[in-house]
Design a binder for these strands. Structure first.
Length: 669
RNA sequence: GCGCCCGUAGCUCAGCUGGAUAGAGCGUUUGGCUACGAACCAAAAGGUCGGGAGUUCGAAUCUCUCCGGGCGCGCCA
């Protein structure tokens, strides 16, 4: 609701300034620092003052005097050196926010332009860890936000099932464990196959480091896997598929769904690269290097950043440094990862003259079907995948450069619009605090122990496994639930413990903005107090308790009657909401009616953390309200109904905000 | 060397498309459960927004520079 009125205010100002002063300038508005200054304010007169060579305050006064009424705005006043402060009509806002409650989500038309979000993309060779969860939770939450904003979204998870990391584990099974593909298949049916591979991968890494000659063995294995023949390829398929199932089970615990798993094996075997290669050659986007360090390779020249090289760069520089040439095809004829990625992205945008086949792969707990790319004929009922207008890739910020290369590839092929619509949704890594790393028994060099965080090596088997962390969260949530609700059935307690664990974890990963390195520590991640998911969930549980008891109480019939009068606008709100006495109620209502503005900002900035913070702020504001007003014992009937209505408005908004974060609110906890 | 990111309270982080008195959580100290659930609330203490210069009516926010830290720049993915 807030966004609606703010936009009306801005529009009115823009039109007025255009007509009266023949000036067109962007109208910015902001929340004033204090409620006494109104709900929305514009500093536009400062800018206007420069053009008109007039005092900003005088201009503001003119505008305030002559601006036509804006729906939802009670008055506009001049403040400070020339601010225009808008004071909302509090009662009207409250009614409108209630009418809008739970209905702020827009739905996308079936033929609306499609947005593809790629996230997760965990190498299918070992268990998922905390860093992977940041990616998946960010991506999943962003998808929820986009869909809420009315976008048609397709979620893809890229599976690099033919890469060197899978080859390592295959090498381990064949040469360290002496297992046949069938024996490995048997292993995948056991418990925690992803954990088995985690340990094996570590052993292989060490084994490879002991003797460089063994790298050649891995090279041969990688080639067999890429070409798709022999025991290595069969085993790679078994391992990768089993691990992907493990990952999906882990991510299902957090409520994360996919539409399509795009596998590298299909990109290779269905010759996507060959098609892309032809396009790149024909268009001149890549060139065959005949000399220099990249001789024998196909390379792509990247436009230099910066430009204007003048004078000075004469003396000591090496002659002709071919700095910005990126190798796409190696001198042995094989394609690099970036090359494959260019082909994949051509397909995502519907620019490639071929398509995958598709099979059903995994049914999520909510019933949603995740499909996988396939070599064989497609299953019946295959949706239309790909052909996006816009693509977001959720990939950590260290991969900014290769992502730029992919975009440059599209541009070089003449697809400038698609290149612009290819967005790298970058985020920083999850590291461990030195204390946490040492608790886990890792050796940390002295100079690193002084830092705020240390990055640990997955190759050495270090890291916090996702399932272990979720297990620990569920365990400690359960202990708390058991203590509070000993009489509840086991099933119910388990469900509550699970919801709390998910709330704690997802909130923890979302409260940081994308560019922040998360220094992981069990103490913070396992906390259920303060700025956490469970704090927000608890506020909802409180609301539920109040509304439940209210509906059963002696005043229930009277409340129902007054609530229906409220809905029809028959209760005068002025006395309750208007300043000075009504400020605290109004502040809560205003915040509860601001979800639309926050979601808008979050989508615009691609920053899910904004919504996480909003949920916390609203829960906090409700807790203050809760302590200040005793709702059910309020003697004045109309006021009690209003307090109840505020309470249920807060519930509706909190539930919606949490669901955007992928967090559910239990009835009790 | 080139490029990107970061530096805000004891700690962890918001605030950055310029705007009014720089916020939150944790931690510390003190107070509040016979009222709708204390996974809560109230209060206090805690700041040269890394240093300097510039642009501006106005800078934590933009520019430059210096200092300190992280990451990227492979015929790896």
């Amino acid at each position: 609701m807030y966004k609606t009125i703010e936009e009306r205010f801005r529009k009115a100002l823009r039109r007025h300034i255009h007509e009266r002063y023949k000036a067109d300038l962007p109208i910015v508005t902001e929340r004033p620092p204090k409620l006494a200054m109104g709900e929305s304010a514009s500093p536009v007169c400062f800018e206007l003052a420069k053009r008109l060579k007039k005092a900003p305050r005088a201009i503001a006064q003119e505008i305030a005097n002559s601006l036509a009424a804006v729906e939802g705005v009670a008055k506009v006043e001049v403040a400070g050196g020339g601010y225009l402060n808008a004071y909302f009509d509090r009662g009207a806002f409250f009614l409108a926010a209630c009418a809008e409650e739970g209905r702020t989500a827009k739905s996308a038309a079936a033929d609306a332009p499609k947005t593809i979000v790629e996230h997760t993309a965990i190498n299918p060779n070992k268990a998922a860890h905390i860093g992977h969860l940041r990616n998946a939770v960010l991506g999943d939450t962003f998808v929820r936000l986009l869909r809420h904003a009315g976008r048609r979204v397709e979620v893809q998870n890229y599976i690099d099932n033919t890469g060197v990391q899978v080859a390592d584990v295959v090498l381990g099974f064949l040469h360290l464990e002496k297992k046949t593909p069938e024996q490995v298949r048997e292993l995948t049916r056991g418990e925690r196959f992803d954990y088995v591979c985690w340990d094996l991968y570590t052993r292989v890494t060490q084994w490879l480091a002991e003797d460089k000659a063994r790298l050649e063995m891995r090279g041969r294995m990688l080639k067999e896997i890429e070409e798709g023949h022999g025991d290595a390829a069969r085993m790679a398929e078994i391992v990768a598929t089993a691990i992907v199932h493990c990952h999906l089970r882990t991510l299902d615990r957090l409520g994360i769904d996919y539409d399509l798993l795009s596998q590298e094996s299909e990109i290779l075997h269905l010759k996507f690269w060959d098609a892309a290669f032809e396009m790149l050659k024909k268009s001149g986007a890549i060139q065959f290097a005949t000399e220099g360090k990249s001789a024998g390779c196909w390379v792509m020249e990247l436009p230099k950043a910066g430009g204007e090289e003048q004078g000075e760069a004469t003396a000591e520089e090496e002659p002709v440094e071919e700095a910005e040439a990126k190798i796409i095809v190696r001198s042995n004829g094989t394609v690099t990862y970036v090359g494959k990625d260019i082909a994949y992205h051509l397909w995502k945008f519907g620019l490639l003259d071929r398509d995958f086949h598709y099979r059903k792969f995994h049914r999520h707990p909510d019933g949603h079907e995740a499909w996988v790319t396939s070599m064989e004929a497609s299953d019946a009922g295959t949706p239309q995948f790909g052909r996006a207008k816009e693509v977001f890739n959720v990939i950590d910020s260290r991969q900014a450069y290769p992502q730029e290369v992919v975009a440059a590839g599209l541009r070089a092929l003449g697809h400038t619009e698609q290149a612009e619509h290819l967005k790298h949704f970058a985020y920083n890594v999850v590291a461990l605090t030195p204390r946490c790393a040492m608790e886990m028994g890792y050796e940390i060099p002295a100079e690193e122990a002084k830092r705020a965080y240390v990055e640990v090596s997955g190759r050495k088997g270090q890291g916090v496994k996702a399932d272990d962390l979720i297990d620990r969260l569920e365990e400690s949530a359960r202990a708390e639930v058991d203590a509070r609700h000993a009489a509840s059935p086991e099933e119910e307690r388990a469900a509550i413990g699970h919801a709390i664990a998910v709330g704690a974890l997802r909130y923890f990963l979302l409260r940081f903005t994308r560019s922040t390195v998360i220094a992981f520590d069990f103490k913070d991640a396992l906390s259920f107090e303060g700025e956490t998911g469970p704090y927000v969930q608890y506020a909802i549980v409180r609301v539920n308790g109040i509304l439940r008891k209210g509906a059963e109480g002696a005043t229930a019939a009277e409340d129902a009657k007054n609530l229906s009068r409220f809905a029809k606008g028959e209760i005068a709100l002025g006395g309750l909401l208007d300043a000075p006495g009504g400020d605290d109620l109004w502040e809560l209502i205003l915040l509860a009616g601001s979800l639309d503005a926050r979601v808008d900002a979050a989508v615009g900035a691609q920053e899910p953390a904004f919504v996480a913070r909003y949920a916390f702020e609203l829960a906090q504001a409700f807790n203050v309200f809760y302590h200040r007003h005793h709702i059910l014992s309020e003697g004045e009937a109309e006021k009690r109904a209003v307090l109840l209505r505020i309470t249920s408005l807060v519930r509706g908004t909190l539930v919606e905000a949490l669901s955007l974060l992928g967090i559910t609110a239990p009835e009790k906890m």
